[in-house]
C-alpha cells in the first residue's frame, strides 16, 4: 500500500494550478485535503504523474453571506462548514449534515471542493449541493464557468469537471426566511458513508407547503433531488398521508445498488423512512414547533 512514484507541485495561485493541469495533459490530480485521493494512491487505484497541491492558494477558504446565496470557497474545510456561525445561522441543514461526514480528523482536512470533485454517491456534500440548488464555479484556461449542481454529478465518482478545470467556489441558495429543515442519515457506524440519507427544506404559506426541496444520498448512482415527491408536496397541506405518499414516490423513484453493507431493498426502505421523517420534522419546524 505505497503509491507509485509521482511528481508533486505546490502552487500558490489558481493560474499556476491551471497551468500545471494543462501541462500535465490529463496525467495530473489536484490534492487538497487528500482524504479520498491519498488512499486511492496507496491502493494504486490511481497513478497520476503529478499531484498539484492547492492548499497554499490564498482566497479559496471563505464563507461569504449574500442576500440570496452563500458562497463558500473550495478550500473550506468540512469542520469549518460544520461550525461556522454564519452557516449554522443561514444554512443549518448544511452544518447538521457536515457533522455526519466521517470523523473529526478527516473533517479537519477534507474540503468542499474535494468532496464535490470526488463525487462519492453516498457522500453528504454533493447531496447538500443539490438540496440547496448550488452553483459550482470553476476556473479553467478558457476562463471558467458556473455549473448547476443538478448538472454536475454524472455518476459514481464522475462529474462534469474537465481535466483542465479547477473547482473554486460553491454558491448555495439560501432557503427563504422561516423555512423548516431536516437531515437524517443511517450509516453502519458513526462517521461511515450513508446507507441512506435524506434532507428537506420547505416553508409553509397559508398552511400549505411551498418550495419543498427533498434530496437523498446513498440510494442511487448519484445523490438526487426527489422531483416527483416535491411535485406531490408543493401547495399541499402537510399531513401524514401526504408525507407517506411522498415517501412512496421516493421509494418508487430511487434505484439503489446492493453492496456489502446494504441491499437495494433495504436502502429503498430507508429512503422512504428517512424522507417521511425529515418531512415531518421540517414541516413541524416551519410551523413554528420544535421538531
Amino acid at each position: 500500500m505505497k503509491p507509485a512514484a509521482f511528481d508533486y507541485l505546490a502552487v500558490e495561485s489558481v493560474e499556476a494550478a491551471l497551468e500545471a493541469l494543462a501541462r500535465a495533459g490529463g496525467e495530473a490530480k489536484i490534492v487538497a485535503g487528500g482524504q479520498s485521493l491519498v488512499p486511492m494512491l496507496n491502493f494504486r487505484l490511481l497513478q497520476p504523474a503529478l499531484l498539484v497541491d492547492i492548499n497554499r492558494i490564498p482566497g479559496l477558504d471563505f464563507i461569504a453571506v449574500e442576500p440570496a446565496r452563500i458562497r463558500v470557497g473550495a478550500l473550506t474545510r468540512h469542520h469549518r462548514q460544520e461550525t461556522a456561525p454564519e452557516l449554522r445561522e443561514h444554512l443549518p441543514v448544511l452544518s447538521a449534515a457536515m457533522a455526519e461526514v466521517a470523523h473529526l480528523a478527516i473533517r479537519n482536512r477534507g474540503t468542499l471542493g474535494g468532496s464535490l470533485s470526488h463525487a462519492d454517491p453516498a457522500a453528504e456534500l454533493p447531496m447538500m449541493a443539490l438540496l440547496l440548488d448550488a452553483e459550482i464555479a470553476t476556473a479553467s484556461p478558457s476562463g471558467g464557468r458556473r455549473i448547476a449542481a443538478r448538472d454536475f454529478f454524472l455518476g459514481p465518482l464522475a462529474t462534469g469537471l474537465a481535466e483542465d478545470e479547477l473547482l473554486i467556489e460553491v454558491a448555495f441558495a439560501r432557503p427563504a426566511a422561516g423555512s423548516g429543515w431536516a437531515f437524517e442519515e443511517v450509516a453502519r457506524r458513526s462517521g461511515d458513508f450513508a446507507l441512506a440519507a435524506a434532507a428537506v427544506t420547505l416553508r409553509l404559506q397559508d398552511g400549505r407547503i411551498a418550495e419543498p426541496h427533498v434530496a437523498l444520498t446513498g440510494v442511487d448512482e448519484t445523490p438526487l433531488r426527489a422531483g416527483a415527491a416535491e411535485a406531490l408536496l408543493d401547495g399541499e397541506a402537510p399531513g401524514a398521508e401526504l408525507f407517506a405518499a411522498a415517501a412512496e414516490a421516493v421509494r418508487r423513484r430511487v434505484q439503489p445498488n446492493t453492496d456489502l453493507h446494504a441491499s437495494a431493498d433495504y436502502r429503498r426502505h430507508l429512503a422512504g423512512v428517512l424522507v417521511r421523517r425529515t418531512l415531518e420534522k421540517a414541516a413541524a419546524q416551519a410551523a413554528g414547533g420544535r421538531a
Binding site: F43, H103, R188, R189, S190, G191, F193, L260
Partner: peptide, 26 residues
Amino acid sequence: YEEVVYDADGQNLTASLVDYLIPSAP
C-alpha cells in the same frame, strides 16, 4: 459489525477498514 466476507470467487471483499467494520467509540 465485524465480518470477513469472501465472495464465490474467493475474493476477500472486506480488505480495508472501510468495509471491515470495527466498532469505534460511539
